[in-house]
Simulated assay, not measured.
Amino acid sequence: MKKLILGSALMLAFSVSFVSCKEATDKAKEAAETVEDNAKEAADKVADETSKAAEEVKETATEMVDGIPSFDDAAVAEYVKTYDEYVSEYKEAAESKDMTAFAALGTKGQELATKSQEVMKNLSADDAKKLTEYLTAKSKELQEYATKMTN
C-alpha cells in the first residue's frame, strides 16, 4: 500500500511539474515575443527620429551654405532668391559708393516690398517664421552696408 501511495504521490508531483514547466515555457515565450515587439517599436521610433534629425541637419546645412532658407511655397522661394540678389547689388553699390546704382536700387526695393505683401498671404506658420528671420537678418546687413557707405 505504501508503494501505491508513494507511486501515486510521485506521479502527482511529476504531472504538476510538467504542467508548471509547460506554463513557464509559455510565459517565457510570451515574454520573449513582448520584448521582441517592444524592441522593434523602439528601433522604428529611433529610425524615424534619426531620419527627421538628419533632414533638419541637411536643411540647416543648406541654409548655412546658401544663406537662404528653404520654403514649401515656390513663390516664396523665388521672392527670397530675388531679395538675396537685391542685397548683393546693394552691397556692391554701397562698397563702391555708386550713388546712381544706389538710386536705382530704391525702385527695386519698393517693388520687393510690394511683392512681399503678395507672398506673405499664402505662407504656412513655419515658412512665415523662416521668412521673418531671413528678412530681419538681411535688414541688418542692409543697415551695415548703408552705414559703411556714409562713412
Rank of each mutant, 00 (worst) to 15 (best):
D26V: 09
K27W: 12
K27M: 12
K27S: 11
A28Y: 05
A28D: 09
A28L: 13
K29R: 10
K29E: 15
K29Y: 13
E30C: 02
A31L: 13
A32E: 09
T34I: 07
T34L: 11
V35D: 08
E36Y: 15
E36Q: 15
D37G: 11
D37E: 15
D37I: 13
A39S: 07
A39F: 10
K40N: 09
E41F: 09
E41H: 10
A43Y: 05
A43S: 13
A43E: 11
D44F: 10
D44S: 14
A47V: 05
E49D: 15
E49K: 12
A53D: 11
A54H: 12
E56S: 07
T62R: 08
T62E: 11
V65E: 14
G67R: 00
G67T: 01
I68W: 10
P69A: 08
S70E: 06
S70W: 00
F71W: 08
F71D: 01
F71C: 03
A74H: 02
A75Y: 04
A75T: 09
V76K: 05
A77C: 00
A77T: 03
V80L: 04
V80F: 01
V80M: 03
V80I: 07
K81Y: 08
T82N: 13
Y83Q: 06
Y83M: 09
Y86T: 00
Y86W: 06
V87Q: 04
S88E: 12
Y90W: 09
E92R: 05
A94H: 04
A94R: 05
A94D: 03
E95G: 08
S96W: 03
S96F: 02
K97V: 09
D98W: 02
M99T: 14
T100S: 07
T100V: 11
F102G: 01
A103W: 05
A104M: 09
L105A: 04
G106M: 13
G106D: 15
G106T: 14
G106S: 14
T107N: 10
K108H: 06
G109E: 11
Q110E: 15
E111K: 12
E111A: 13
L112Q: 09
L112F: 05
A113C: 02
S116Q: 15
Q117M: 11
Q117N: 11
Q117V: 14
Q117S: 12
E118K: 14
E118G: 10
V119D: 03
V119L: 06
K121G: 02
L123M: 15
D127I: 07
A128I: 07
A128Y: 05
K129G: 07
K130Q: 06
K130D: 01
E133P: 00
Y134K: 03
Y134N: 01
T136A: 08
T136Q: 11
T136K: 13
K138W: 01
K138H: 03
K138A: 04
S139W: 02
E144N: 05
Y145E: 02
Y145W: 04
